[in-house]
Design a protein around this nucleic acid. Structure first.
Lengths: 227, 227
DNA sequence: AGTTTGAGTGAACAGGTGTTCACTCAAATC
DNA sequence: GATTTGAGTGAACACCTGTTCACTCAAACT
């Protein structure tokens, strides 16, 4: 047991840098442990779910004793809510990138799908967390994710309002269209996350085609219905 | 302990009918216990996931001893695969109902959404199981569900092939369209399952509008793209 | 009638679970 | 320099976990 220092290990492996060399303030150290808990949890529940994850698994992954967990979170569910916030911070960063979309791409669809693909990889754990816990997490976590997605849908509907003719597009229709686009993008995300890498090109192509189909529908839409 | 008979209790509560009055064959009894395990599992993992469900919880729910479980399934994962088969039997029954759609409804969309709503309620546990375990179940269960959904998508694409002009609709486009419709219906199912009952009317209306939008897109689609 | 089969039992195992408690000891405050 | 604060420790608790084993005893087969 003489190996275990008082300082948390922070991740699965042992620190490469001499642990003594870091003069940390109290707050810095607490924040570092907190981060380590969040990161370890994202990794550990990757192929199961928060509801199947035990407090002791998390603390073992971090390299702290079970009791230390309570200095940071009340429960796994509480931890989950923190991860929802963090994950949606990633997602909103992506939306920011989508909005000021790369001018080298000629249209919105290509650049959106490109940005989605990039972020799903660079923020893989966050996107996987949302996709899973959205339907399988603890009730409070599910509710929090649903709420966040609803906010995103409303934002997208507001964006779309600026691009469409209010004569033909009612607020309700825009909300419905926005929901469909978000649902489709959630589906694309799930597909990327659970596919072999070589299939990703095809998934992206499918996502583009779907958005094009929806766009064709939108261009011919009349609020009055199919007429 | 004198209350506990040798016969399994079959569900949460105690049997109302005198348990002695049933002369069962060996096979009948085994099948009854198997059903009880399947039913108890569907109930128990309703608000968590298979991965968070223990073998002992299941057997306690059924009213049998943990060891008896192994007479029916190798593991919880094995049980999960049986539930996938059973749940997709429900889903395919729904698809059958959709195909010979109610002639009192004038179009496919209205009747399809109606049938979906009905089946999501009458087979609530099966649909909830698929929706959850699709993303959060044990790997083998996830794979099985993905495979089944892929089959459904291909069937739908074949149906659509009969309704569209092959001049404008390539096989690939039909597959993509089918994927979008299925994704949208999965989204609608999730929405119904996690919404308060009074919101269901609005969800159905949204589902109809989305299908109408897609249909408008389909009617104006050219395989060559947006032109 | 006698034998085999197999669904269900109950005890035991080694180990994992959340939570409590009194504790250390270094940073932060006085 | 003395005191307070609080992140982390380690033992202990009562309970739950999957799996094993030898067993019962009624239905099914010979």
């Amino acid at each position: 047991m003489e190996r275990s220092s008082r300082r948390p290990r922070v991740a699965g492996g042992d620190p490469v840098v001499p642990p003594v060399a870091a003069p940390e303030s109290r707050g810095e150290r607490k924040e570092r442990t907190r981060r380590a808990i969040l990161d370890a949890t994202l990794e550990l529940c990757e192929d199961s779910s928060l509801v199947a994850l035990s407090l002791r698994q998390v603390t073992k992954g971090v390299g702290i004793v079970p009791t230390a967990f309570y200095r940071h979170f009340d429960s796994i569910e509480d931890l989950g809510l923190a991860l929802v916030e963090e994950s949606f911070a990633s997602l909103r960063e992506m939306l920011r990138d989508v909005r000021r979309s790369d001018p080298t791409y000629q249209n919105i669809i290509d650049s959106s799908v490109k940005v989605l693909g990039e972020h799903v990889h660079s923020q893989h754990d966050h996107f996987a967390f949302i996709a899973r816990e959205r339907v399988a997490g603890p009730p409070a976590v599910r509710a929090a994710i649903r709420h966040q997605i609803e906010l995103v849908e409303r934002e997208l509907a507001a964006d779309l309002a600026r691009l469409t003719d209010p004569e033909y597009w009612s607020t309700e229709d825009l909300q419905v269209l926005s929901n469909m686009i978000v649902t489709s993008m959630v589906g694309t995300t799930e597909a990327i996350l659970s596919a072999r890498p070589e299939a990703e090109q095809a998934i992206a192509e499918q996502a583009r085609t779907q958005l094009r189909m929806v766009l064709v529908g939108a261009l011919h839409w009349r609020s009055t219905g199919l007429g």
